[in-house]
Amino acid sequence: MGRMALHITGEAAADELLSSDAFALLVGMLLDQQVAMETAFAGPEKIRSRLGSIEPGAIASTDPERLLEVFRQTPAVHRYPGSMAGRVQALAVAVRDDWGGEASAIWTEGDPSGGEVLKRLKALPGFGDQKARIFLALLGKQCGLDAPGWREAAGAYGEDDCFRSVADITSSESLAKVRATKQAAKAAAKGAKG
């Protein structure tokens, strides 16, 4: 799978880790809720630097209290360190136990279709339908995934030049476009509620 250098966080070390480690990228996506995208995707580098590893097996076997300390250390990995430490650990256990410790196997093992990759992602702890579709689009748009039907399985997130999600961030300019799209969607939703 031909992976591009990712430019999500604006931090060289964090972006390099996301570009080179499939589990780090998966963790960044898991953390991407109720915090800025850059904060979420910088989380794996904070975990790696504080814990000494971002390997699924290492995180899965870390004492939960120790992992919570890693998440709480300033600057915090996430605004909800307790629940997110637990979710990251559950994800690590699933990748270790179900995918042999290799996160990329989720989207490569058995040469799956886009629909199958989506199904596998949705089976992961913390990955609902929308998060799974966004991550599938990220894999297809920036990480070289060529599974047949990935764009259709990703839905609107698979469209080119849509600037809907992290899948579309390749620069500070595209980040600004994604932010504007999200703000417009929030405003429209708020307006619809009346």
Rank of each mutant, 00 (worst) to 15 (best):
A58Y: 05
I59L: 13
A60V: 11
T62Q: 07
L67D: 02
R72Q: 14
Q73K: 15
P75H: 13
V77Y: 05
M84F: 10
A85H: 01
G86E: 12
G86A: 12
R87N: 09
R87T: 04
V88C: 11
Q89H: 10
A92K: 00
A92C: 06
V95D: 02
V95M: 05
D97T: 09
G100K: 14
G101Q: 04
A103M: 03
A103D: 00
A103C: 04
A103G: 06
S104K: 12
A105Q: 08
I106S: 00
D111W: 07
G114H: 00
E116C: 05
R120C: 08
R120F: 07
L121Y: 01
K122W: 00
L124R: 00
P125V: 10
F127H: 02
G128K: 05
G128T: 06
K131I: 13
L136I: 07
L136W: 00
C143T: 02
G144L: 12
G144C: 13
G144E: 12
D146C: 12
A147F: 09
A147T: 08
P148R: 15
P148N: 13
A154M: 08
G155M: 09
G155E: 04
A156W: 06
A156N: 06
G158K: 08
E159M: 12
D160E: 15
D160C: 08
D161N: 14
D161H: 13
F163D: 13
S165T: 10
V166T: 13
V166M: 07
A167C: 11
A167V: 10
I169Q: 08
I169W: 04
T170N: 10
E173F: 08
S174T: 15
S174K: 11
